[in-house]
Structure formats: structure tokens, C-alpha cells
Design a binder for these strands. Sequence first.
DNA 1: CGAAGCTGAGAGGAAGATAG
DNA 2: CTATCTTCCTCTCAGCTTCG
Length: 327
Amino acid sequence: MTIDDIAGALGVSKTTVSRAISGNGRIGAETRERVLEYIRCHNYRPNLVAKGLAKQRTYNIAVVWPGDYTSFDLPFFQRLLIGINSYLSERDYDIIIAVDVGNDYTSLKRIVDNRKCDGVILTRTLKRDKTIAYLQQEGIPFVTVGSCNDASVTQIDNDNRGACCELTQILLAKGYKRLVLIGGPSDQVVNEQRYEGFTDAYIRAGASPEEGLAYMDVVDDMHLHTVLSDIIKRHVDGIVCMDDYLAAQTLIKCHTDEIRIPEDIKLASFYDSSALRNSVPSITSIRFDDHALGEEAAKAILQKLDGCVPRNEKLRQYNVVLRESTQ
DNA sequence: CGAAGCTGAGAGGAAGATAG
DNA sequence: CTATCTTCCTCTCAGCTTCG
């Protein structure tokens, strides 16, 4: 059934049917109700492809998923994606996933070149982000989940710097002065912000982190193993991991080397994934509302498509959840 | 005469159908 | 084989009719 069929059945023009559905343009209340009643009785659904043709829209949003995500990052991405989808699906938009690694945007480019999406949501940002530069050059509306230095980019983000600072401050206040930070690729803005938060906490405590106790760019198990061996030799008070994969590997390494957590060394992480929430011991972590983060990103991209300039949201709040690993 | 209510025509992209 | 319609469905501009 099309609006033409409805128009024929009710003896009005298809324009009138269209106006009754959209609510745009002049139409009598009685005529409108007659059309809507007919639609209700006959389960009519407008053809979105035809609507897209008329409105020059695809009703798809591309979401860029970093292909190098680990299984421990997945819960974050899953919650984020569900948040994005719950907002978009209520407004007849769908998601297309583009899987790209680092600064390679081949997958996204194919989607954009084939005009399969109206806008793009990036789920992380890099310090020199070529994907952002590409989208700016192409003039494609986009928002980032994650911060970047370009103020013209609409950015939605958790307060990673503040969260890492507060977590570190809590550990310092407990008397754990020699803390180590382990982080992933430093070209990811999120990791840099967490590093800054870590050093902020020391500065606020009137101290500075011990030289060489921040291990960045830990990207594979071999490297992590070497780092952990080094850390254990240095007899530090605690380890702060920038993600749950690193924390999980640290747990395994400590168990193998018969180092007890929290008796011999404290351990804290990010993301609050269920694997570490329920591990023995349970791991102190940061809790963000990733679902709401996704909804906000989706809202912002639809605002951009409608020609609004969404204000750059303030950083989203968090909770530090203290558990057995830092007692 | 002007506002309200409505209609006709055409645009939009891609693929299939038809004419030359 | 190439070029030119035609079709799919919806939206919207421009314009028509009706009525107070």
C-alpha cells in the first residue's frame, strides 16, 4: 500500500495524505483524522526508501568501530552501541558499522563514497586523527565519542582525565604513594587524558609520580609481560590499569608469580566490566554511563543533520567504585 | 480580498524496459 | 549496443477552489 492507494480510497490527493502523516502544511483537522484512521485500520507504513529519495536522506548513520578493540573493550562498545541504537531507532534511523583500524578509514570511505549514510559517529579519537580530517574535507556531518583539540568538532566524552585523577587521589590518600600506570597506545586521546589525570593527582597531592612509573604504549601480551615483570621487581604499592584487558592480564601475572592482591600490591582499572567486577578479588574501577553516552552522541548527530549546531556537551560524570583489590 | 484547504506536477537515484 | 524513457514512492513548491 502507498499513499496513492490511500488517496484513491479516500478521494483526496496524495499530497493531502502526505500532509496528514507528516503534520506539515495546511490540512483540515477532519481530513487529517480521516486519513490517520484509515492508516491505523490498514497498518500502512511509509516506504522509507522513497522518503529518503525525496528528502535526500539514507536514514543510516555510520558508526566507526575500531577493529583493534579487544574482548575486554567490547562491553563498553556494546553499551555505547545500544545507547546509540535506542535513540536512532525511535527516529527511523539505522546503524551501519564501519570497522577500521587506527588511521585507516577504508571501510568508512566506501560507505561514504556509496552514499549509504547521512552522518558518522566515531567511537574514539586519535591525536592526529586522519578520519576526522577526511570527514571534514568531505563535509560529512559527524560527531566523536572522545575528545579532540579541534573546537569545531562536536565531541561527546566521558571525563576520563577527571576520573583517573580522582581514582589516583583516592589511592594516594590511602597511603599508597608509589603507583604505577599502565596504558595502551598513547596516540589515543583517551589514554593521554588518563595519563594526565594520573599526574594531576600527584600534583594536587604536592608530589610527582616517580620517574619511569608510567608505562604507555603497552599493546601486546609480550610487552605487557615484560612491563609487569619490571613492575614487580620495583616493589610498588599499586597498579592503575587504563583498561580492563591490562587489568585482567595483571591479575593472571600476579597469580602466577604468587603476588597477592591486595595484600602485596593494589590494583585498579577502568570500564568496570563484569569480568573484573566478579573476579577474585573484585577490582576497583570507574563506572561510566556508556548507554547515555551513546544516546547523547546519537542525539547530537541527528541535530547536526537537521542543521542545528549541538553545543559541545560538558564531560560526562562517573563513579569510582572501590572494591577488594584496593583494600 | 484573503485565508483555509486542497491539488497537480515534478524532483530525487538507480535499475529495468523500450526505442532507435 | 546505446540512448532514452519509465517506474518505484514520497515530499514540496506553486497554484487552484471555496467560503466568510
